[in-house]
Simulated scan of single mutants.
Amino acid sequence: MQSSQVNISSKSELLMDAPMFVKMMLMQALVGFFLYVNCLMIFTFLKKEVFWEDTRYILFAQMLFVDSAVMVLTDVLLIGSFYQLRIHMISCIIMCVVVSTLTCCSPLTLVAMCLERYVAICMPLRHANISTSRTRFFGFLIIWSISSITALFTFIAYLSVVRPGPLFSYVICGLEIMLEKEWQAQARAVILLVFFLLMIIIIVFTYIKIMIAARAASSEKKNSTNKSLRTVLLHAFQLFLCIMQFLTPYIEMPFWKLDVKVFNNVRYTNLVVFIIAPRCLSPLIYGLRDEKFFAGLRHYAMCGLTSLSQRRSVNRK
């Protein structure tokens, strides 16, 4: 009994060391900043009706929502792990299922955005007929259905092997807690690998098609086509980072029972590189590079002062 108390106290001392505390404060600042930027962009989307009928902006808004939710929930899990906070097992399972679904939804939305650019560039005459509200509805239904496959499999597999007793216990919540047996982790890895290969094939296909269209395009359309080509490349890099986060539970699991301090450092690094970094690219790709969206974003970020100054300059003239 005394040895366990000493072990717990030593773990808490490790967790409360100054460098890790500074890292946690830095993490909260990063998450807070990007949440503010994402919320400002979502507000811009909601205020401009012109974006509501454009598929790429709707997908972008979904990406912002999913990214924001993933950042918040992952940050909550990191804080719980840092302070060794225990929550009810059922609440932890629900949170893990939601995080797993959202994590898969993010790269799938990226793939859908690449496909939208492919249709717009390579099939411009059919783009209006394909990009309808009915098509968007089925597209979102497919995205969310596929996103839930991994989470549902992990959930059902966990219930099939766990005893009823642990479901009513209190645990330090983490995504690895539902991987009770080795075969569960291996099966989940296979599912994610299949998803990864399919998404890579679609990204490469769209890039090649848009590149061919760029070479054949006239000088008037060349700039637009080249911009779409760069967008797909950025999405491919963003997709790579998103896919890498699927591997983070397998990187972190060996340290789960070995050393709490090392485990938290590894989890912190994975969170910054594979969770926060890919979600920094979403505002860059559409929020800053898209002239139409950036104009609305700047207007609301400056609280309407830009349009007011423009009106004053026109009146002076």
Rank of each mutant, 00 (worst) to 15 (best):
A151I: 07
I142H: 05
L159W: 15
S133I: 14
F294E: 05
V31D: 03
L15I: 02
L14C: 06
D67M: 02
C104Y: 04
L125N: 14
Q62F: 05
N270K: 02
V171G: 02
I149M: 13
A185S: 15
I251K: 06
E176S: 13
V72C: 13
T44P: 01
K257M: 03
L241E: 01
I202H: 03
N226C: 03
I212T: 12
N7R: 12
A187R: 08
L197S: 09
T101K: 04
Y57L: 04
W144T: 00
T135Y: 11
P19F: 11
V22K: 12
C39R: 13
V22S: 03
L159D: 15
N315W: 10
L305I: 12
D67A: 15
L141S: 06
V97N: 00
R215M: 10
C105D: 01
F205S: 06
M199L: 02
I201Q: 13
R316W: 04
W183K: 12
E220L: 08
G174F: 11
L271H: 08
K209N: 12
T269M: 01
V232D: 05
R215A: 10
A185W: 14
Q28M: 04
L197F: 15
V70W: 00
L108K: 02
I285R: 11
V314G: 00
F294G: 05
T109Y: 03
R316S: 09
M63F: 04
V31E: 05
F294P: 01
L40C: 14
L241P: 11
K261N: 03
T248M: 13
R134F: 07
L198V: 12
V273N: 05
Y57T: 05
Y170C: 08
A157E: 02
W144M: 09
H235Q: 09
V31F: 08
S309Q: 10
M244Q: 14
I243T: 06
L30P: 08
L193D: 06
Y57G: 03
R126Q: 10
F153V: 15
Y36K: 06
A69G: 00
Y36L: 14
W183M: 07
L233Q: 14
F294K: 12
T55Q: 07
F34N: 04
A189M: 13
I42A: 04
C105S: 11
S12G: 01
C303L: 11
M27V: 00
S3A: 13
I191A: 08
S160P: 09
T154D: 11
L26V: 10
L247W: 15
P164K: 13
R279S: 05
Y286S: 04
A187P: 03
K221A: 01
V204D: 04
I210L: 06
Q310K: 13
C280Q: 12
F65H: 02
C114E: 09
S218E: 11
M199F: 09
C105T: 09
I275T: 15
Q28T: 04
I251Q: 05
V314Q: 03
Q310Y: 14
M89Q: 15
F137C: 09
M89Y: 15
A214R: 09
Q2S: 14
L78Q: 10
S148V: 02
T206H: 07
Y83H: 14
V99L: 15
H127I: 01
F237L: 07
V97W: 13
E116A: 04
A277E: 00
P19C: 12
M41D: 00
L241N: 05
Q184W: 08
R136H: 08
F293Y: 03
T135A: 10
A295M: 10
L193P: 01
